[in-house]
Design a protein around this nucleic acid. Structure first.
Lengths: 155, 155
DNA sequence: TATTGTTATACTCTATAACTATA
DNA sequence: TATAGTTATAGAGTATAACAATA
């Protein structure tokens, strides 16, 4: 009989391969090329957070979603503002804070980026059934949740 | 009816959450603490490659498996050698090259690390059925493969 | 005094370039 | 001249510390 399924031997290497395929293929970098702006990964990540939120956000809020610290977002926003992709506006509720919002060009750039990424994913998974897509999404979500719970339990 | 399953909305965020859960929890760093050596991620990665291969390897071979360039591995091996976790021995087949092999202490450290990681994975996934574990492994492997093929097709 | 954000600095990981030694 | 490895340097990404302004 075949030896039992092992998380260490059978699951961890798959996770490594996946992250390798994403990095090695420089998929993010190629999708950024399609935007016409020389952005880097954290910059496009800021744009993506704003786009998905669909509203202006504080620096601290963006940092929280990206799981990074504030100063890092400040620097990215500075660069994006210089390029005219975001602007800072006053926060009516708190004069200490300002809100970061996408400009029209920023929105267009982000939409081009997302469209490119989606078309590649569709290309890679064209042979997948709807059931398998759904199953992967569900299982991945569950793993992320269970790992987060495990981490909490360890603290 | 519910809107259709979207790779962009339903799969990509799950991948992000997973990588977030792994990084945010600093799982690798905690597992390293269990080894009793102040190693960093690339260093433990070199040890893991050697352990999984089960034989001495060339620097270039290690770099290939880690998907990084040679000089990076050289630096890691230098550090590991100073700590007595690996040693360099002559390659009988090619005098230009040397082989990197684990010392007894290096093996012990790697085994402690792997055991810790596995116990956490087991803890996180204790409620998972064997079928779901297997399904996730299979689907992840397939996704990694299909993405790699997509990248090849784009070159 | 607590919180939001910024500036300045430093650290980790990985890459490129130039060089040495052997094939 | 090609290949394996090393040394030195540089860059991207993110963190910590110190500070300013407002609550």
């Amino acid at each position: 009989m075949p030896s039992e399924f092992s998380l260490l031997r059978d699951l961890l290497p798959r996770l490594n391969e996946l992250s390798g395929a994403l990095n090695r293929g420089r998929l993010v970098e190629r999708a950024i090329d399609s935007t016409g702006h020389p952005l880097d990964r954290p910059a496009i990540s800021v744009l993506g957070v704003l786009q998905l939120a669909g509203r202006p956000m504080r620096v601290g809020e963006i940092a929280h979603r990206m799981k990074v610290v504030g100063p890092h977002v400040t620097r990215q926003v500075n660069g994006l503002e210089e390029r005219g992709l975001v602007r800072r506006v006053a926060d009516p509720d708190d004069q200490r804070a300002r809100l970061v919002e996408l400009t029209a060009e920023g929105k267009a750039v982000t939409e081009r980026y997302f469209a490119t990424v989606e078309s590649w994913l569709e290309g890679a998974m064209s042979a997948w059934t709807a059931e398998d897509r759904q199953a992967l999404g569900t299982l991945l979500g569950r793993l992320a949740e269970d790992l987060a719970a495990q981490v909490s339990a360890m603290d």
